[in-house]
Nucleic acid binder design. Sequence first.
DNA 1: GTCTATAGCTCGATAGAC
DNA 2: GTCTATCGAGCTATAGAC
Lengths: 193, 193
Amino acid sequence: MRTELLDAAKALLWEGGYERMSPRKVLERSGAGQGSLYHHFPTKRALAAAALVEVERELVESAERVLGGDAPPLDRVRAWLALERNGLKGCRLGRLANEVEVLGSDELRSALAGYFNRVLALLTATLSEAKERNELRASAAPADLAAALVALVQGGYVLSRALANEKLISRATRGAMSLLDAAAHSSSRSRSD
Amino acid sequence: MRTELLDAAKALLWEGGYERMSPRKVLERSGAGQGSLYHHFPTKRALAAAALVEVERELVESAERVLGGDAPPLDRVRAWLALERNGLKGCRLGRLANEVEVLGSDELRSALAGYFNRVLALLTATLSEAKERNELRASAAPADLAAALVALVQGGYVLSRALANEKLISRATRGAMSLLDAAAHSSSRSRSD
DNA sequence: GTCTATAGCTCGATAGAC
DNA sequence: GTCTATCGAGCTATAGAC
């Protein structure tokens, strides 16, 4: 039952965020009875925190899969940019970054911080490697570029949702691809323009 | 009194979003009495919609001020990227793009859509101009680059808030600056690296 | 135009039987 | 471990006096 509660919480957090995720809805969705939620978790927040830890792990694994390989660094960055993303559903963690109750609770916010810090570190390392290999122009600081790319994906979700247009996020990542190609030395450009 | 109600709504929408903006809080903040809200506006949503129209106008004006001048196009884009932004407070419109009730109401969402469409159009036009002047490499489609830049700013807010670190958004825009410089032909680079 | 009072609902959480 | 019942609070909105 604990598993069903967590799965229901994960689904509701994705669909509506933390503040809309009511214990009642979790119970309905999971098929659990009223008593069982507060048997397995002391508070709504504890349930959400446990759910977000799992989401964090899932998203980190997915990022490590593309960014952690031994392919040429810029290809890994391109592969990360090209990951399948549903612009209208939003990022499962990033969508929570505007909720007062999430930002006000270290327990909840740490899932977001853990994920973003990990992705930023992976991208920074990958971009540094590209720079060492002389595949990336020196003017760009890897940490700044990493922040730019992660932000771009998160903002792509925002744009897609605000304009109710699934295409916006891929337009944004395509734009990022172009900029990255322009910042790459020609020796590393294996893709067609 | 209508003005005070709108100002209170604008402040609350910025601080906590639409779903947290309760009529009670609007009344407290504005100093108005209970009856006056529903005298001036039929519903909470109508009040929020009116407030968001004003916010949209303010943000559009600010974007037009930097992007609409007659300076060299890439300088205008750089000036827009360099605008002062409080990463921890979030974008007054973009922060609403994850709220179910906002996305589910055309009345509310249209403020977000209006703003983002306008900024995308301005940036696309400016980048097209840069391309015509041969100041920007041809591989980049202006509409894609515009989406990338707007997304990057919106995602910068997300990162800053998720990591509780004001610097993230400026790190992201600095990274964008680097990428833009790399995509610019050297003839247009007036800034030091 | 603004007041007080309150409707009907959902919220997060708890009590106590089984 | 799960059940039913319910608490006190806040929610959006309405009623009716002034």
